[in-house]
Design a protein around this nucleic acid. Structure first.
Length: 416
RNA sequence: GUGGGCGUAGCUCAGCUGGUAGAGCACUCGGUUGUGGUCCGAGAUGUCGCGGGUUCGAGCCCCGUCGCUCACCCCA
């Protein structure tokens, strides 16, 4: 029996794991720089939380959740998205009782039992932020700016921000009446009609030409916004303009999670395959109340770390890591090895990143290992060095070396 | 869940109309005694995804199966 990773999971090994971590770190920095605080949450929750939060009729809930019964007979689900869990924690611990908004960020693995394809995994990674408690356009713009700042900090260029407003409950109700009437007169197959009955907005996203042509004349939600929603959305756009963040109004932008209201957005990368959304989010007015909390509004985003890494690779960006090795130590002979490993051990404690040669490799092989390690410096310790207390430290890139006392290595490394 | 493509050394792949397996990279050792990246030489590595069938003979053909992958769908 040869074991394999479960179907469709993403995993990051040496060669790519540093770049993945760099993506996560960069987005984290963007969130922290705007005052968001870490919420470390469980990867599984009560199934009902997602059913109620994400929406009973959504694809995510109806056919993509990893649900199982635990030993106590409770129905548990591996989290398919982050917002519901954050809201649960906020409500459960009363985080919304202090000053508002509550600003949180989170990251980790999420699970959806979909058919895998490029950029779509069954276990994938997201980093998200949520600002809960105030319905202020300033916050909408901030959330979008945080995401955009993270992407720009990575050096990404070939992406676009699409934005729209889904309005408030009154806006959507008014639009729904006209849209349903419009759809009733359209030509479509049964499956599509069923889909439309569940969420008519989905038809705006349909890729088939015959549907696209018909939908091009459909009434747009953006034209039904209440005065309040309109003002809010205009303000968000004005703020983005003032930040210098470019965006494209996409009136047919539809998101698959039911809780979105008002400002809704998506970051789309142009060099990815069919799964091109690298992040997205929006405001959710009724979610917290729906989950048993106060009637507070919130807004947040989820960024797909796997896809963002793919996007960086598509743009051939150099994702520099800072955790490379400072020094590689080569010991020759049993006696010298004892001295060398003691030296390595104490230098590591002083905060340097150091690796050494193991086993009984010949010097040539050990130097090759030093080269492969990417260490900035290398040094050899043999009988002579142990006796004299002097070593020759070599800068790998230039090939130049200089002699110094073993006791002076830390100071030497510090000077770089 | 529905379709298309593909499964040969650790990786990328070659293998013409069926005659029982190869290259490059990577790896190990060496090129006179303790300094890498280039060059040269040597070496190790595969139940050709799995099962069955056709055939004197199958990596090459047929059937099934599993897996990977891309797309639909959906979304991060």
């Amino acid at each position: 029996m040869k074991f394999q990773a479960p179907k469709g999971v993403s995993e990051y090994l040496p060669g790519r794991s540093v770049a993945f971590d760099y993506v996560r770190q960069t987005l984290t920095t963007a969130a922290v720089s705007a005052g968001y605080q870490l919420a470390e949450l469980p990867v599984f929750e009560d199934t009902e939380l997602f059913a109620r939060g994400v929406g009973e009729t959504t694809d995510v809930v109806t056919k993509e959740m990893y649900t199982f019964e635990d030993r106590g007979g409770r129905s548990i689900t591996l989290r398919p998205e982050g917002t519901a869990g954050v809201m649960r924690a906020v409500i459960e611990h009363g985080l919304d009782r202090g000053q508002l908004p509550v600003k949180l960020w989170y990251t980790g693995a999420f699970f959806r039992a979909e058919r895998p394809q490029a950029g779509r995994y069954r276990q994938f990674y997201q980093l998200g932020i949520e600002a809960i408690g105030l319905n202020d356009p300033e916050i909408d713009a901030e959330v979008i700016a945080v995401a955009d700042r993270g992407l720009k900090a990575l050096g990404l260029k070939d992406y676009r921000l699409e934005i729209t407003s889904l309005g408030d409950a009154a806006s959507r109700a008014a639009h729904r009446v006209d849209l349903d009437a419009f759809i009733a007169k359209m030509n479509m197959d049964e499956a599509t009609r069923t889909k439309a009955a569940i969420n008519p907005l989905r038809l705006f996203d349909d890729k088939r030409e015959e549907i696209k042509i018909q939908m091009s004349k459909a009434p747009l939600l953006i034209d039904y916004l209440s005065a309040e929603s309109r003002t809010h959305f205009d303000r968000v756009c004005a703020l983005l303009d003032s930040y210098g963040i470019e965006y494209r109004l996409n009136t047919s932008l539809v998101r698959g999670l039911d809780y979105y209201t008002g400002t809704t957005f998506e970051f789309v990368h142009e060099k990815l395959g069919a799964q091109s959304a690298i992040g997205g989010g929006g405001r959710y007015d009724g979610l917290m109340r729906q989950l048993g909390g106060a009637d507070l509004s919130g807004i947040g985003f989820g960024m797909g770390l796997d896809r963002i890494l793919l996007a960086c690779e598509a743009e051939e960006l150099e994702l520099l890591d800072s955790d490379g090795l400072d020094l590689f130590v080569i010991a020759l002979g049993t006696e010298s090895k004892f001295v060398a490993s003691g030296l390595v051990n104490s230098l590591r404690s002083e905060g340097f990143n150091i690796d050494m040669s193991y086993g009984d490799r010949a010097l040539k092989g050990a130097m090759k290992a030093a080269d492969k390690s990417g260490a900035r410096f290398s040094l050899v310790i043999g009988e002579d060095e142990v006796a004299s207390g002097q070593i020759s430290i070599k800068e790998m890139e230039t090939g130049e070396s200089q002699t110094l006392a073993i006791t002076a290595i830390a100071d030497f490394l510090d000077s770089f």
